[in-house]
Design a protein around this nucleic acid. Structure first.
Lengths: 208, 208
DNA sequence: AATTTTCTGTTGTTTTTGCAACATTTTTAT
DNA sequence: ATAAAAATGTTGCAAAAACAACAGAAAATT
């Protein structure tokens, strides 16, 4: 697998006009897309950060996934269900490649550079997405808030070491872990008192 | 997308010996594979049912995923983490195709039928897996046992209608939804008393 | 720079979930 | 066919999480 692949280069190489591809920019707070019907929409996030969010009937926000550079998403990956209206929200300025996916091996008439490159890197992009989703399931399947927090900190520490800044605000983190914000805050205090962690807002230090 | 694709036909077509492919049979209860190292293992379940399971430090069993015909799994899709030892367990007799994945587009010397077919159907298989995982995340992100139950029943009712038999025992279902068995059983009783459902063991009827 | 909004940490209270133990039924193994 | 093992449904109790409300801090907006 080619883990060094950078979609930004890929898109910069893509200079000709392919009718099946669009590149759009979104400002912070804007809705990039909604999952409402079963379309063949396939998106690649070129830059920025975006969340896949949903609100339950109680008004609780759920952050189902967080997307960053090279993340893929779109209706193609989702079984539309009237009970679940998902929205992809830009958390900061985002550049998104939107593609109408029919068959990965189907090229446009001009057999453009974009399609050649997409076919080449599609497996890596998609396997990486599965890896992310599997980790996410492992995290959400944890029973307690404490376990979810420590599990998430573990993932971050693999990447950044014992000290890191959360990619979420505390409030957003609770939505991402699907727990009540105040309960989570209480548990963070317990972890601090027990000298498991040091924390000040987004700054976390693991003491184990 | 070709949703009628059946891997069984595919494998029956695959008659020549490809050095990178193995087909193995497993009896109920046997371990099909474990996720311990970062190998390029990629598996397709040809027949049977299998679970991806993990035990937390408290001894609770977690069913992270359930695999049936055409499901794909393997270490290739998992970030190995020493804290999380996952096992794929056969729930009934299983036939599994094991493949050493390097590059989906890399064919074996003989450019065998297997590789040709795998390349063709790989996108469908993998997109379908992502769809499943996304639904699973939506389910696990629900806050209460009641919501998880109703969410899961919704998924099943889309496929089977208002009356169906759970693909899990009640005990297994609690592991799949990551909740305590007795709590879940209690909530099922509440749902029955409130005339939301009828239930007797695996038999469920939705009354709404 | 001032004001409004959001975020944060706290805590008391209520609700839900987890845990443990048990009798009964069902399934599996011998 | 019988015995052993596993699953099921229940319940009391303990633990954890959700809810609600608030004050102060930080961030965003104008």
């Amino acid at each position: 697998m080619n883990n060094d692949f950078n979609i930004v280069n890929f898109v910069q190489d893509f200079s000709n006009n392919c009718s099946k591809v669009q590149i759009k920019n979104f400002e912070k707070g804007e809705t990039i897309t909604t999952f409402l019907v079963n379309r063949n929409q396939f998106c690649i996030l070129i830059s920025g950060t975006a969340d896949l969010v949903k609100y339950d009937y109680n008004g609780n926000k759920i952050i189902a996934e967080r997307f960053s550079k090279n993340s893929i998403f779109g209706e193609i990956f989702y079984n539309i269900n009237t009970n679940n209206e998902f929205i992809v929200e830009a958390k900061e300025k985002c550049k998104v490649l939107l593609y109408s996916y029919d068959d990965i091996n189907e090229k446009c008439k001009s057999n453009c550079k974009f399609h050649q490159t997409l076919i080449k890197y599609f497996p890596d992009l998609i396997i990486s997405k599965i890896t992310d989703l599997t980790s996410r399931i492992e995290l959400l399947s944890r029973r307690t808030t404490r376990d979810k927090l420590l599990g998430y900190f573990d993932l971050l520490s693999k990447q950044y070491g014992k000290s890191f800044t959360l990619p979420f605000s505390v409030t957003e983190l609770s939505n991402y872990l699907s727990v009540d914000r105040s309960s989570m805050s209480r548990e963070l205090t317990v972890l601090k008192n027990e000298k498991f962690i040091e924390q000040d807002r987004r700054k976390i230090k693991l003491l184990y």
